[in-house]
Write a protein that binds this DNA or RNA. Structure first.
Length: 790
DNA sequence: TCTAGGCATTCGACGAGAATAAT
DNA sequence: ATTATTCTCGTCGAATGCCT
């Protein structure tokens, strides 16, 4: 160590955790990298000149440090542009405005100065590098590995009797903190006999102790569950009320409550705040977590299968006042641990998403699907000497919003029960079409080749075979890399670190590939093209119809199909496998049909109205007896548990045992149980999301009435809030009789509503599909019953 | 402000016509 | 007997949440 010297050069092996530019530096951009090291962390600095591209002459302007002539592609056009660099990011907007006022179009001024830094350095914002550092300034870097992040999770409890917590009056009574070194503590303002509890004499002390722990334990990553929207903003506001500070940042700064496009986000300088709820939300939306309830319990159960201590969140104040405090401590601690475990499940995935999309971990966990695709495309454009197109202006967004086009083809099934069903689907259908037909926003309908060298879509739009477009070439690399990774995974031990890394990597690539089609039709996209989206779906409809036609002509009856799948009735499995070989031989390029599975039996139910079968509603059972229910009430959260559970049981009996009698009997029992009033309200709650501001509703449905009641009672209801209600007895509309669970008095439900509008609508279409009529089921027991028919 | 379109379903809003009440 | 009000029924569209 050159401690005595003026200069000192060192090598730092560090994993990038947090990036910004020094807020103290007003006239130059000093990039700050907070990197985690083997035994702590370091702050590294680098001077950078952010840039924009100008398509024209550039006069002398304040803040500009250099103007360089460069060759770039704008779409297909080769252009000589000016690469304009500025001293500090604050000049980017000013220079852009000054130039555009002179009629010079500018590009890439809004992709973020830190993103530009990483793009130009070829560095990943989530990567690990060996940095050669001179007095804290980065001189060189090269790829490295092996640095573990220190992770922690925390969860708070607030005393808020019968209302949403109000930071002016409701104190924080408990906080759990756990970390990757096995440290666990529960801070609370009451004495509790529990090994992990550290009692503190006041709420103010609790905040100070928590701050001390964060600073001493010094985690790189802090997981919370909904910390963006609740825990951390609440801690901050509450700390202000109490007059204490929360200097959790590694530069001594307070936690930062930021406004973003998607509501609030909370940053802690030098660390990564990972709001695990955001991850859960995203993973649920792409089907990677099988739950629609996004509370910590449900997500934990769906992911880990484990149960935790359960208490009613609304009753926390009661337990605090006069209940089992040990239970509350255990609950709070388990929440923090569950949050930690869920976060751990996805940390590597987001590190990889960050790598592919030039995003820090903090950003990566908060990015929408469109942002993920766009960042990936910006990166690939940069690699190909292409300039990213501008973002659309508001007026253009509105115009795009009005453009519509036709989507996937859905084959109407014949209602009924089927045996021996094979489900086949296209592997990554839309991405495959993009690659196979060179579908690209910059190429669509561009006359740069002879007519013979074009792919013409059924919708009429065409794409030249050459040159390869940005989107198709990017996606081709993405899919090829993914297949390669999946191949490597087969030879690895599932529990090995390498397996986990490669698995996360292929998952990240899958997410990027799957989001690419939707991005094209997203009105705010830089690479927007409704024509491309339309061409893709038109090809997709042709391909799936071709598969159906070919299957039929080879004696495999088509039962159903949706967008990229076909359901075939088969006699022998080999026939299906032979068909797969045959069709894949015919399919061009990357297109490939795969076997999803064989099913023993399946039911396609009638619609509530009319004789025809519903689309997107069916149930299958495989050879091992696993029931797969799709689109039916069972999978919908806006149906009560009693209706959903009854439907599941009926399907199980019908498909699994083939026992319709037992199913009818079961429904009768449920109806009787409802009539007797013995049903627990938990089974009756209907959950509905409030999707807009309460005063914006044209139609005031039950969930809106319930939301208003909650609001009057002191609960916070915003777009995104999920309200739960029970329909009670009485007169008037359903809305008038709907009571929020929070305000419900015991036993006051309307059995008739639950029988006629919940349980029976969920099961009658099943029986009707099997040939029974409604009256067979609902007529009184004294008359002839369903059994007489069987 | 959260990639796309396709689909089933429920419930409230609303209007027409019937039933009932008021004059 | 006429008119005003309430009730009933059917249609339509808003709203939600699913599927791929």
């Amino acid at each position: 160590m050159g401690c005595g010297n003026f200069y000192y050069v060192e090598e730092v092996v560090g994993r990038i955790v947090y990036v910004d530019h020094d807020p103290e530096e007003k006239e130059r951009m000093v990039v700050r990298l907070f990197v985690a090291t083997e035994d702590g962390w370091k702050l590294l600095r680098d001077v950078y000149h952010p840039y924009l591209f100008a398509d024209g002459e550039v006069p002398k302007l304040e803040g500009v440090v250099s103007v360089e002539e460069v060759e770039r592609f704008l779409g297909l056009e080769r252009r000589i542009m000016k690469l304009v660099r500025v001293r500090h990011p604050k000049y980017l907007q000013r220079v852009k405005e000054a130039l555009e006022a002179r009629g010079v179009l500018c590009y890439e001024y809004d992709i973020g100065p830190e993103v530009q830094y990483f793009l130009e350095k070829g560095m990943s914002p989530t990567g690990t590098y060996t940095f050669v550092v001179e007095n804290g300034w980065i001189k060189e870097f090269k790829e490295a590995g092996g640095v573990e992040l220190r992770r922690a999770a925390l969860d708070i409890e607030v005393y808020a009797p019968g209302r949403s917590p109000d930071h002016e009056r409701d104190p924080v009574i408990m906080v759990s903190y756990v970390d990757s070194d096995g440290f666990e503590v529960v801070l609370t303002t009451k004495e509790v006999d529990h090994s992990k509890v550290m009692p503190v004499e006041s709420e103010g002390r609790l905040f100070q102790e928590l701050t001390r722990i964060v600073r001493e334990r010094d985690p790189d990553v802090i997981y919370t569950y909904n910390g963006d929207d609740f825990d951390l903003p609440y801690l901050k506001r509450r700390a202000e009320v109490l007059g204490v500070r929360l200097p959790w940042g590694r530069d001594g700064s307070e936690i930062q409550v930021r406004r973003t496009a998607m509501g609030g986000a909370v940053a802690i300088r030098g660390r990564v705040h990972v709001d695990v709820y955001r991850i859960a939300e995203y993973m649920a939306s792409i089907g990677a977590i099988a739950t629609y309830k996004l509370d910590l319990e449900s997500v934990y159960r769906a992911l880990k299968g484990g149960e935790k201590v359960r208490i009613n969140r609304r009753k926390i104040h009661e337990i605090w006042d006069s209940g089992d405090l040990k239970l509350l401590v255990e609950y709070n601690l388990q929440d923090a641990k569950a949050c930690f475990e869920i976060g751990e499940e996805f940390l590597e995935l987001y590190t990889e998403i960050g790598r592919y999309t030039v995003s820090e971990l903090y950003e990566a966990v908060r990015m929408s699907a469109s942002q993920i695709v766009e960042r990936k495309l910006i990166r690939e454009a940069h690699r190909r000497n292409k300039v990213a197109p501008k973002r659309p202006k508001e007026k253009e967004v509105l115009r795009r919003l009005r453009e519509t086009y036709v989507g996937g083809y859905v084959h109407e099934p014949e209602p009924g029960l089927y045996e021996n069903i094979a489900v086949l689907d296209f592997r990554s259908l839309y991405p495959s079409i993009i690659i196979t037909h060179n579908v690209d926003p910059e190429l669509v309908n561009r006359d740069v080749c002879s007519e013979e060298e074009r792919y013409v879509s059924p919708a009429g739009h065409f794409f030249c075979r050459e040159p390869r477009g940005l989107l198709p070439s990017t996606l081709e690399e993405v899919l090829k890399e993914r297949f390669e990774l999946k191949r490597k995974l087969k030879g690895l031990e599932r529990s090995s670190p390498e397996y986990k890394l490669l698995y996360a990597r292929q998952q990240a690539l899958k997410i990027i590939a799957n989001a690419s089609y939707g991005y094209l039709a997203f009105p705010r996209a830089r690479w927007y093209s409704k024509e491309c989206a339309e061409a893709i779906t038109s090809w997709a409809r042709d391909y799936i119809k071709l598969v159906m036609k070919e299957a039929e002509s080879r004696g495999l009856r088509v039962i159903y199909g949706d967008t990229d799948s076909v359901f075939l009735r088969y006699e022998r499995k080999e026939d299906v496998l032979d068909f797969l070989d045959y069709i894949n031989e015919k399919l061009p390029g990357m297109m490939e049909l795969e076997l999803e599975g064989f099913y023993k039996r399946g039911i396609f139910i009638k619609r509530r109205k009319g004789e025809r079968a519903a689309k997107k509603k069916y149930a299958l059972i495989d050879e091992r007896g696993n029931l797969k229910i799709t689109g039916m009430e069972y999978v919908r959260r806006d149906w009560s548990e009693i209706a959903r559970e009854t439907q599941r049981r009926v399907l199980e009996l019908v498909l699994g045992e083939g026992d319709v009698e037992a199913a009818v009997k079961y429904v009768r029992e449920v109806v009787e149980r409802l009539k007797s009033g013995r049903v627990d309200v938990d089974e009756l709650v209907i959950y509905t999301e409030i999707q807009k501001e309460l005063d914006e509703y044209e139609q005031v449905g039950p969930h809106v009435v319930v939301a208003r009641k909650l609001q009057r009672a002191g609960y916070r209801v915003r777009p995104g809030t999920i309200v739960g209600y029970v329909v009670t007895r009485g007169t008037g509309s359903v809305s008038e009789r709907a009571e929020p669970v929070e305000l419900l008095k015991d036993g006051e439900y309307d059995p008739d509503y639950y029988i006629e509008k919940q349980v029976l609508p969920a099961v009658l279409p099943i029986f009707e599909t099997l040939g029974y009529t409604t009256s067979d089921l609902v007529r009184p027991a004294s008359q002839r019953s369903l059994f007489d028919f069987v």
